[in-house]
Design a protein around this nucleic acid. Structure first.
Length: 490
RNA sequence: CGGGGUGUGGCGCAGUUGGUAGCGUACUACGUUCGGGACGUAGGGGCCGGAAGUUCGAGUCUUCUCACCCCGACCA
């Protein structure tokens, strides 16, 4: 049936691309590496945004907005930060165009900027520049701000949603009076992300510390959530950084504490991006198309009429519209698709491709029996039930689907997590099926880099809950106190 | 930046030794259909990525360019 999609097992990345295009989520644009997010894809992003925004506000944060442009000089203030982003910055050098003698549009050389502007790859610098003016006393703290924005990172290779030159995200930037409070904030937010991922996206994640090598540019500690995709590769789904006093020092943000002493402010930053769309796709979708978690599906239930003529459609529509209204009253988003230009079979396939969790089909046979056909996307099963039962049945079914796809993803991860002690086995696992590898590591950057060179796997994180366990580094054989999470990643 | 590939109606493709562009699909109209991607009939839509050259004649040959996609190195 899924002849419209590349088979997932034959060519995973082609399957992914096909899916994004054919499910009408996004398409490539006229600008290299930048995508057009189409209405259906954007609707999913809006659901993600709405829930995250709710969670941020529930944990005391407020939204604000800072400029797209950052003066170049700001970047030179935090050394590690500039080193991390310098290679991928878009730079604005002029502010005017003009027509030349041949009628071509050219950059007006007289309109050169005194100081170039960087299009933000992330906003720490411009935000901390503002915070300097906002913070004088411990009474001004904490500042708990989030920003919904677009950022630009001039990546060499891009993929729809997973890595685009411009992407949408949220970035939280908080300021605190104490080290403990900032650390607590950074941990709190990685927990918010993990909760969102598991509850809303139905994707289990591993929370942990990033190794020094993988840490955010300018951070003292980076926490991350890592999800396992169906091709055995890891996807970093969110990060939360403990920035220490680095940015406060770089931007000279000091405050007077309770005892009248001057100190630098403690900081965190945290973010998730449209990459989460990629996580949802690669975490759940199958050869029939997307499988959306009910909590993030723009359309949770679609109703499709099956009819022989217009009169019949009229009768069916009366019932279908009643059902739609009844379900909507329960807070469920419903689409009634009575378009006449496609047959039912076509619509079935199309909504499967789009990952709509529940499909209701209603035809003359059902009208006679007062029944309706209920099909679920996650396992593609169908059942016929009495119409008056659906108001009770559908909400439960949506919950059930949400839970089922979570469990499916969790089982997949369990089956593809390997405890490995020998280097040979390490390589074998990666070449056979990929997946998560829990292995001992001697804690050195050199070993981490050698492992990356020879296996293309990186330390995804040092899991918070990785128990203390004496062992030997899988690569160097040197002693180690706990296992860390390795994988090839996106 | 290296390796590979592709540019021809909206989309997917064909186009032979150079001879004036075709198929599928989508679209429009009408009719028959409608419980897993229906069918018939009629219709509209393309200076073949761009430039220069060879030729009586170029989608096709030559040179140069541009763009995009895929695979690596870099990254959320």
């Amino acid at each position: 049936m899924a002849k419209f999609l590349t088979n997932r097992d034959e060519n995973y990345s082609q399957w992914y691309n096909d899916l994004v295009i054919k499910a009408d989520l996004a398409e490539n644009s006229a600008v290299r590496g930048c995508m057009v997010i189409k209405p259906y894809g954007y609707a999913i992003w809006e659901k993600i945004q709405a829930e995250l925004d709710r969670l941020f506000k529930a944990t005391g944060h407020v939204n604000a907005y800072f400029p797209l442009f950052i003066p170049k000089s700001f970047f030179s203030k935090e050394a590690a930060h500039v080193k991390g982003f310098a290679k991928e910055c878009a730079v604005v050098t002029h502010y005017r165009l003009k027509n030349d003698e041949n009628g071509n549009v050219v950059v007006d050389p007289t309109a050169k900027l005194e100081e170039e502007l960087i299009i933000r790859p992330t906003s720490e610098t411009i935000i901390w520049h503002s915070y300097k003016n906002w913070i004088k006393s411990y009474r001004d703290l904490p500042i708990l701000i989030n920003q919904w924005a677009n950022v630009v990172r001039w990546e060499m290779r891009t993929r729809l949603f997973l890595r685009t030159t411009e992407f949408l995200w949220q970035e939280g930037h908080t300021a605190h009076a104490t080290r403990e409070e900032a650390l607590e904030e950074a941990e709190k937010m990685i927990n918010v992300y993990a909760g969102f991922s598991e509850n809303s996206m139905a994707l289990p994640v591993i929370k942990g510390y990033k190794s020094e090598n993988e840490r955010f540019a300018g951070a003292l500690d980076t926490f991350a959530i890592e999800a396992l995709m169906q091709d055995g590769k890891a996807l970093q789904a969110g990060t939360s950084h403990f920035l220490g006093q680095n940015f406060a020092k770089a931007f000279d943000v000091q405050f007077t504490d309770r005892t009248g002493k001057l100190d630098y402010v403690w900081a965190t930053s945290w973010g998730v991006s449209t990459r989460l769309m990629g996580a949802i796709i690669m975490g759940h979708a199958d050869n029939h198309g997307l499988v959306l978690p009910p909590k993030l599906a723009p359309i949770q239930v679609v109703i499709i009429p099956i009819y022989k003529n217009i009169e019949q459609l009229g009768t069916l529509s009366d019932t279908a519209k009643k059902i739609k209204a009844g379900l909507e009253a329960l807070g469920i988003s419903v689409k009634y698709d009575d378009r006449d230009n496609n047959k039912p079979g076509w619509k079935f396939a199309d909504y499967e491709l789009k990952g709509v969790p529940v499909r209701l089909a209603i035809g003359p046979r059902d009208l006679e029996n007062n029944t309706i056909e209920v099909a679920r996307r996650d396992n593609l099963t169908k059942e016929t039930i009495p119409i008056d039962k659906i108001y009770e049945h559908i909400p439960k079914l949506l919950d059930d689907i949400q839970e089922n796809i979570y469990n499916k993803a969790l089982n997949f991860r369990k089956e593809n997590t390997f405890y490995v002690d020998k280097w040979d086995d390490f390589l074998k696992v990666l070449d056979n099926q990929g997946g998560f590898i829990m292995a001992h590591w001697d804690g050195t950057v050199e070993t981490e880099e050698k492992i990356k060179e020879e296996s293309k796997a990186t330390i995804r994180c040092i899991p918070f809950d990785s128990p203390e366990e004496k062992g030997k580094c899988v690569y160097s054989g040197k002693p180690s106190n706990r296992r860390v999470l390795f994988a090839r990643s996106y």
